[in-house]
């Protein structure tokens, strides 16, 4: 039988304590030399090292390089995929012609193309931007198509009878109506861009945060490695956060509506 619910804040507090406990356990085990400290140095050591690394600033240059790559690739992919997706979503013929090709290409693991693209574009930024672009296109494209195809026909007809021109239709009906679904694709691609950024830098890189982490491991500079991973986690967190902020503004009407209908 359901009783009165326990306070949520309280149980979340336990969660944070649990997390601290885990970290403390790591610290204690490392201090007692019960784990190999060459591989797993004390948490406190990692954190102080991270502080030093950040204040020295060299790492920030690596981060900047990586972010420039992933952001530019992401933006190009978004622009490309949304435009293509709207065309494919709106014109059924285009969709029907291209769909089988997409279905064949989509399950292809993009990483397998890295060596191929290295052959054509070399080891520089072009290769990485292109790889990230390729991977980011899919979620945005598929969601845009879904979003546009899912628009209620009544909405389009209404705009038409009101005399909307094709551009107005696009701007005032199709884009906003499909936006919630497009935003889903955009969100998935944020994570994808970071993943492919790291992978491409690990496989074919000489700089960037992904390369930094793998290289640190190869040279057994474990502190560098852990610090790099924490920084990367921070970037991931920041990206998610910023994206949520932006998308909440972009589609606040949709969030409000779904909250209402769910009640």
């Amino acid at each position: 039988m359901r009783g009165p619910g326990r306070l949520q804040a309280e149980s979340r507090l336990w969660g944070y304590l649990f997390l601290l406990g885990l970290l403390a356990l790591w610290e204690v085990l490392a201090r007692a030399e019960m784990v190999n400290t060459l591989l797993f140095p004390r948490v406190s050591l990692i954190l102080t090292y991270l502080g030093k690394l950040l204040t020295a600033g060299d790492i920030l240059a690596q981060v900047a390089i990586s972010l420039a790559r992933s952001l530019s690739a992401y933006l190009i992919a978004a622009l490309f995929a949304i435009s293509l997706g709207i065309v494919m979503g709106y014109y059924r013929v285009v969709y029907e012609v291209v769909e089988p090709f997409m279905e064949m290409l989509r399950p292809m693991p993009i990483v397998a193309l890295i060596p191929v693209i290295i052959l054509f574009l070399g080891l520089g930024w072009q290769m990485k931007v292109f790889i990230i672009f390729l991977a980011c296109v899919w979620p945005i494209l598929l969601n845009t198509i879904d979003g546009v195809r899912g628009i209620d026909a009544v909405l389009v007809h209404t705009a038409r009878t009101l005399g909307a021109s094709p551009m107005q239709l696009l701007r005032y009906v199709i884009l906003p109506a499909a936006l919630p679904v497009i935003v889903t694709g955009l969100r998935i691609s944020v994570a994808t861009s970071l993943i492919l950024m790291v992978i491409s830098e690990m496989i074919g890189g000489m700089n960037g945060i992904g390369f930094f982490i793998l290289n640190a491991q190869r040279k057994m500079r474990v502190l560098d490695m852990f610090a790099g991973i924490i920084i990367l986690g921070g970037i991931g967190y920041l990206f998610n956060f910023l994206f949520r902020l932006a998308s909440n503004r972009l589609i606040h009407w949709h969030l409000g509506m779904t909250r209402l209908t769910r009640r």
Binding site: A191, I195, V198, I199, M225, G236, F239
Partner: peptide
């Protein structure tokens, strides 16, 4: 939020 491939070096360790 950590991109999963970042764990590869730890896995290698």
């Amino acid at each position: 939020p950590l991109p999963t491939p970042a764990m590869i070096p730890i896995a290698i360790l």
